[in-house]
Nucleic acid binder design. Structure first.
Lengths: 106, 106
DNA sequence: TGGACATGTGACCTTTTGGTCACCTATCCT
DNA sequence: AGGATAGGTGACCAAAAGGTCACATGTCCA
């Protein structure tokens, strides 16, 4: 599996996107804290975090008995630049055509 | 399942992203033509195309006994604007800090 | 008309995914 | 020391995903 594929697959699950949103709002949370935001046992959350780690989207750091989780947005940026971006380009010529058409209206 | 979720899930499979790339290069292809580009039976390709259609990424049009497939990039643009974009913003202040640090070097 | 071609459906199979649980280890704190 | 707290592992299970096949329908064209 390629790096890009790991990232796309990681983003495919709504729970994992929600975890990223939580970390986007505030970084460095523990597993237990993240679990408290979800309707799921700690074990389910652990599995999701592992998928996110393997995609490079979450970077953990041990601190005593706690494991802090940090967001790394770089992989998202990479798939954006390498794949998504080409589909999000505005087709200006079509808009110009539409504008011209609209201007024909009385 | 939400619309966004359908799009993310549709993009999670490399075969489906490849199909979108094919249609990006040239629109309006038939199932048989798409199948010929993949190492998979027609039935597998049909299933992938269905997932893409349900996500709104591919729009079919019947023409005689053929079914032509057209790319619709709008859903990609939507998830980009609604979700991906916030993760791809450049953190300029961090870059400025880095630049200042580097300039301290002899 | 009838054969070749393009596509569709449903059954079926295997692998992956999402989730839980029992049990275990390590750390903190009184 | 020892209980409470934070996290980790492996087995297990149900559901979904990815893929194939036999068979069926509709369309083209010589």
């Amino acid at each position: 599996m390629t790096d890009d594929d790991r990232v796309f697959k990681a983003l495919a699950d709504p729970t994992r996107r929600f975890l990223l949103d939580l970390l986007f709002a505030r970084d460095g949370r523990t597993l237990t804290e993240l679990e408290s935001e979800l309707d799921m046992t700690r074990f389910g959350v652990m599995k999701h975090l592992r998928v996110l780690e393997e995609a490079g989207l979450v970077v953990p750091r041990k601190s005593g008995r706690e494991k802090l989780h940090f967001l790394n947005p770089v992989p998202i940026r990479l798939i954006h630049d390498r794949w998504i971006d080409k589909y999000t380009e505005r087709h200006v010529s079509a808009l110009v055509t539409l504008k011209a058409d609209l201007e024909k209206e009385p």
